[in-house]
Design a protein around this nucleic acid. Structure first.
Length: 279
DNA sequence: AACCAGGGTGATG
DNA sequence: CATCACCATGGT
C-alpha cells in the first residue's frame, strides 16, 4: 500500500538535511539530489524534493508512526533559526546558506554505532563501513526503487554475538572492538540509553562514555542525533577550526537548547567553504 | 602530560 | 605517485 504524502515545511531541504554529516544511510537516487532514499527504523523510504514541499513515498501509517518524528516535523525550525541568527552574525549567515537543515531523530543505537565508526574517519568511508555492517548483520527488509536489496541496521544483540574476526569484512579497523563493547554494554544494561535520554546532560555523557571508543565527541553526537539532546554541540577538529574563525570567543553553551542546530549550520557551512579555513 | 598507533580511503599536490 | 588528513580515543 504505497501512498504519496506531501509535507509543506519551509525549513526542510533533503540535500541539506540528509547529506550534512548527521546520518549516513541516505543516498541520492541516480545521483540526482532531488530524490533520496534510505533506511531507518527498519523501513525503506524514498523521498522527492519539490519546489515547495517534500514528497514521501510511504503509507500514512508509517508517516504518522515513523517519518513525521524522524524528520522532526513537529518543531518550528524557522523560529529556531531566527533565535540563533539573533545570537550570532556568523550563524545567521551559515543558516541562510542552508536553512533547510533539520536535526533528525535517529534510532539511538544506530546513531551510537554510526558515530563510533565515524571517529578519525572520512564520510565516504563511514558510509561504506555502515553499509557493509547492515549487509552483514542486518535483516533484509525488501528492495529499493532500483531493485537492490535493503537491509535494516543490525540490533545490539546481533552485534553482541560478533568477534573482531567476524567483523573483519567491515574493514572498520580498530573500531570493530569498540562496536562489540558498545553492543555488550547495551545488552547487559551496563549502559542505558533510555537513562541517557533523560538524565542531566553531563550524566548522559558519562553514561555513554563507559563504552570503549566513546569519548566526549562521539557521546555528544550520539546524544544529539540519537537521543535528540539538542543542547549538545559536538566539537571535532573541523568545528574547532570553524569556531575559531566564525565564533571567536563564544561558548557553544550560549546557544542553549538550539546549540546542536547551530553546530549543524556551522559545520555544513564550513564544509562547503573550506577555503575560509586554510591555514 | 605529551605522544602515538590503528586501518583504510579520499584529497591534495 | 606519495603524502597527508580524517566528524577521536585509548594506551603508553
Amino acid at each position: 500500500m504505497k501512498t504519496e504524502i506531501y509535507t509543506i515545511e519551509p525549513c526542510f531541504d533533503l540535500a541539506q538535511t540528509l547529506d550534512c554529516g548527521q546520518a549516513f544511510r541516505w543516498k541520492p537516487v541516480d545521483g540526482c539530489e532531488n530524490a533520496w532514499h534510505g533506511v531507518a527504523y527498519g523501513k525503506y523510504l524514498k523521498l522527492e524534493q519539490k519546489s515547495d514541499a517534500i514528497l514521501l513515498y510511504c503509507s500514512e501509517e508509517d508517516y504518522k508512526n515513523i517519518w513525521h518524528d524522524y524528520f522532526d516535523l513537529s518543531e518550528d525550525y524557522a523560529e529556531k533559526r531566527a533565535a540563533l541568527s539573533a545570537m550570532s552574525e556568523a550563524i545567521r549567515e551559515a543558516a541562510e546558506f542552508a536553512p533547510g537543515i533539520r536535526i533528525l531523530r535517529q534510532e539511538p543505537w544506530e546513531a551510537l554505532c554510526s558515530f563510533i565508526i565515524s571517529q578519525n574517519n572520512n564520510i565516504p568511508r563511514i558510509k561504506g563501513i555502515i553499509e557493509r555492517l547492515c549487509e552483514l548483520l542486518g535483516e533484509k527488509i525488501g528492495e529499493d526503487c532500483a531493485g537492490f536489496p535493503v537491509y535494516s541496521f543490525p540490533t545490539a544483540q546481533k552485534l553482541c554475538e560478533q568477534t573482531v574476526e567476524s567483523l573483519a569484512p567491515l574493514r572498520s579497523g580498530f573500531r570493530a572492538k569498540y562496536l562489540i563493547d558498545a553492543a555488550q554494554k547495551i545488552i547487559s544494561g551496563e549502559v542505558d540509553m533510555k537513562k541517557a535520554a533523560l538524565s542531566p546532560v553531563e550524566d548522559s555523557r558519562k553514561e555513554l562514555q563507559k563504552i570503549k571508543g566513546v569519548g566526549p565527541k562521539v557521546a555528544d553526537c550520539a546524544l544529539l542525533y540519537g537521543l535528540h539532546r539538542t543542547e549538545c554541540f559536538p566539537m571535532d577538529v573541523w568545528m574547532k577550526r570553524a569556531a575559531e574563525v566564525l565564533l571567536p570567543g563564544r561558548d557553544p553553551a550560549e546557544f542553549g537548547e538550539n546549540a546542536g542546530l547551530a553546530q549543524q549550520y556551522i559545520f555544513h557551512y564550513s564544509r562547503m567553504h573550506p577555503e575560509l579555513f586554510k591555514i
